[in-house]
Each structure stands twice: as C-alpha cells, then as structure tokens.
Simulated scan of single mutants.
Amino acid sequence: MKIPNEKIVQAALQVFMRYGIRRTTMNDIAREAGLVRQTLYTVYSGKDEVLCATIRYFSDQMQQEVAAQWQQAENLGEKLDIYFEQSIVASFRMIRASPEAVDMINGYSAAGKAEIRRGQARKTDALAGILQPFEAAILAAGLSVSQFAAFIQSAALGLRNSAEDEAELAELLAALRASVLSLTGG
C-alpha cells in the first residue's frame, strides 16, 4: 500500500499547529492522516522524521510558488515583494494564527533546526539568483552576491521576529526593499 507523504505532512502540520510539537504523538498524526499508527511508522521512524519532512515539504512548496511568480515579475522590486510576501509575511501570519507555530518555524528539535537551516540556505541561494544581474553594484559595495543574499534573508527573518504587527512588518520590509534597490540600482 503506497501512502502519499503529502497527506501525512499536511496532517502533521494540522496536528502540530493544534497541539504543538511537544504534545503531538505519532498516534495523533496517524489519526489525522486517516492511518493506523503502525502504517505511519512504515513511512517515518518517529516524530522528528515527520517534523523534518513537514518542514521540507512546506519550504519546497513555498519556494516553488515563489519561483513560479518570479517568472511573471518584471523587475527586482517585484521579485522582492513576492519573496517577502510568500516567505516572510506568510510565516508571520502563521505564527500569529497559532502560538504553536513558533516551534514549527524554529524547527523545535536538533533535526528540525537542521532542516530549517537547509531550507533557509535554499532561500538564500534563490535570492542570490535574482541578485546575480546586479553583481557589479553589489561588489562595488564590498559584498559578494551570496553575502548580500544572506544578509537580506537574515534581515527579513529578524524583521519578522521583531515586528509587533503586520502593518509594522510591512513598513520594515518596505525599508529593506528600498535599501536593496538603492544598493543594486534595481
């Protein structure tokens, strides 16, 4: 019997958001996915593995959506807007919607945190890709494209974590966007 992992990770996200990662059991995830616990264990060895798969799945989904929207964007400003909305603002909303989301977004366990770092590295690489056409301006500022992409990613996450509300986050991200466009000439 082939079990669709998408169904499991979507069920896991629902349960993690409802109960928190700490209180969620494999039985809770199996029940939400419409499986028996033993069937779940044939796919994942434990909750950490389910957590990592869930983080990876939703990170990949977000990145695919960003890449698809970037195809339609005409300039760097539009691409930054898409990235900030899909990555930063969406996760801010998730945190605000459920206090349990913080553990999910931060990774909760060592394995989850490692998966978050891998996802953030992929996002930084994607940002570097859209910044590549502006390499000369970025180098003139004393940075490499990858350093600048990492800075944008880190700054955006910091803004997300410090903003009091969505309006403040929007203002802060607008300032970051303006700074990036000023430095790149984009």
Rank of each mutant, 00 (worst) to 15 (best):
Q86C: 15
A33V: 14
A121D: 06
I138N: 00
Y19V: 06
Y41N: 12
Q132N: 03
K2E: 14
S45N: 10
A67L: 10
F148M: 15
V36P: 04
A174L: 04
Q72C: 09
G185C: 05
A150V: 05
A111T: 02
R56F: 09
M62S: 10
L127I: 15
S179F: 11
I3L: 15
E135L: 02
V15Q: 08
A126S: 11
E171Y: 03
R93D: 11
K47L: 10
A163K: 05
D165S: 09
Q120T: 08
Y83N: 08
F148Y: 15
A11N: 04
N106S: 12
S182I: 05
I105A: 10
Q153D: 15
L169N: 07
L127S: 12
I29D: 03
E164P: 01
A156R: 00
Y108H: 09
E65Q: 08
L172Q: 13
G107Q: 07
R23D: 10
A136H: 05
A175K: 07
G77E: 11
N161E: 15
M1L: 08
A136Q: 06
S154H: 03
N5I: 12
S91H: 14
T24V: 07
V180I: 01
A67N: 05
S98Q: 03
N106T: 13
Q71N: 09
G129C: 03
S162R: 15
G158P: 05
L35R: 05
D81A: 08
Q71H: 08
A140G: 04
C52G: 12
A140S: 07
Y57W: 08
I152D: 04
L76D: 04
Q61A: 10
A149M: 01
I95N: 06
K47W: 13
F16W: 12
L176P: 06
M26C: 12
G77F: 11
Q71T: 09
A149D: 01
D28W: 07
A136C: 03
M26Q: 15
D103A: 04
N5A: 05
G34V: 12
A163E: 06
E74N: 01
D81G: 10
I95K: 15
R18D: 14
G186P: 13
A156F: 04
Q72I: 05
V9I: 03
V36F: 09
L157D: 12
Q153G: 10
A90L: 07
S146N: 03
L13M: 08
R37G: 08
R18M: 00
A114M: 06
Y41A: 09
I95Q: 14
A178Y: 06
K47P: 14
I55D: 01
L169G: 02
R31I: 11
S162V: 13
N27D: 09
D48I: 09
A140H: 08
D28G: 03
L80N: 13
T184Q: 02
E65D: 11
F148A: 08
A33E: 11
A97L: 12
K2R: 11
L157K: 00
D165W: 08
A156G: 00
K123Q: 15
S162I: 01
Y44A: 14
V50M: 12
A101Y: 12
A121H: 06
T24W: 00
L159S: 05
V102W: 13
Q14D: 05
R31E: 14
V89E: 13
M62L: 09
S45D: 15
V145P: 03
